[in-house]
Design a binder for these strands. Structure first.
Length: 235
DNA sequence: GCATATGTAAACATCT
DNA sequence: CAGATGTTTACATATG
């Protein structure tokens, strides 16, 4: 199992650069983006010659150790000692998480950030007109990026684990009540607004089953109907 | 064919 | 009591 979504014949440097580019557009404030930031600079500047397998971890920045994406570092270590941890993080290493992640998910928490010229929020004007979008959705070529605000009839190409992770990752405290996870998914992926309610069961099922998610007590004074919150299991 | 990951449904218990 | 939440089990499907 590979650690990243690596295209055929794609170099590690290229792959990481692609990931960085995608994240810079979709989750500019995510831990992963910040963690990759330094490395991507090196990659994009040609500093990474592909022979850096033995480079120390500082290349990837300290942020990686603060999130589940620490597995991105682990995969570079040729050791079975990490097998158990990796097993619980295999969903993070799946192709789904990284595939087409870039540019299409508008992080509404960052909506107050002024977009640069030329990158005007093309999704903002897009309303989920089902009649107009059906063809786009059903005939979307696999190489085109998934655009959740447009492809409202198309199930996101991300596993529920990925969706949960992204929701938690997007939260300020890296923890969310289940209800807020629902809301985040509904907001970012309008597909689920019309989807059968079973997806919520799948979310809860994932939270219970996946070792990457940990149940924590809600903060004191927090007004919430939920009993617990969910955080990433830090490594 | 097997192991694993994932999705879905369902039942049940607990909590608000 | 109803609904939300959490846990567990079972089964189907896809993939390596």
């Amino acid at each position: 199992m590979t650690a990243l979504c690596k295209l055929p014949e794609e170099s590690d440097a290229s792959m990481r650069a692609r990931l960085f580019t995608s994240l810079s557009q979709s989750f500019p404030h995510s831990q992963l983006y910040k963690a990759l930031h330094g490395e991507a600079d090196l990659v994009l500047n040609g500093a990474d010659n592909g022979d850096s397998e033995d480079d120390d971890d500082s290349l990837y920045g300290d942020h990686l150790s603060n999130s589940c994406f620490a597995s991105l570092r682990m995969d570079r270590r040729d050791s079975d000692d990490f097998d158990d941890d990796l097993r619980s993080l295999e969903w993070l290493q799946s192709e789904d998480l990284l595939k087409n992640i870039g540019g299409e998910i508008l992080d509404r928490e960052d909506s107050d950030n002024s977009p640069g010229p030329g990158e005007q929020k093309e999704n903002e004007d897009v309303k989920p007109d089902l009649t107009l979008l059906q063809g786009v959705v059903t005939q979307q070529p696999p190489h085109l990026p998934y655009m959740p605000q447009k492809h409202v009839n198309s199930k996101p190409p991300y596993s529920f684990s990925c969706l949960i992770f992204m929701a938690v990752e997007a939260s300020p405290q890296k923890r969310l009540p289940v209800k807020d996870i629902y809301n985040w998914i509904l907001t970012q992926f309008p597909y689920f607004q019309n989807a059968p309610t079973g997806w919520k069961n799948s979310v809860r099922h994932n939270l219970s089953l996946n070792k990457c998610f940990k149940k924590v007590e809600k903060d004191k004074g927090q007004v919430s109907c939920c009993v617990v919150s969910v955080v990433l299991l830090l490594l």
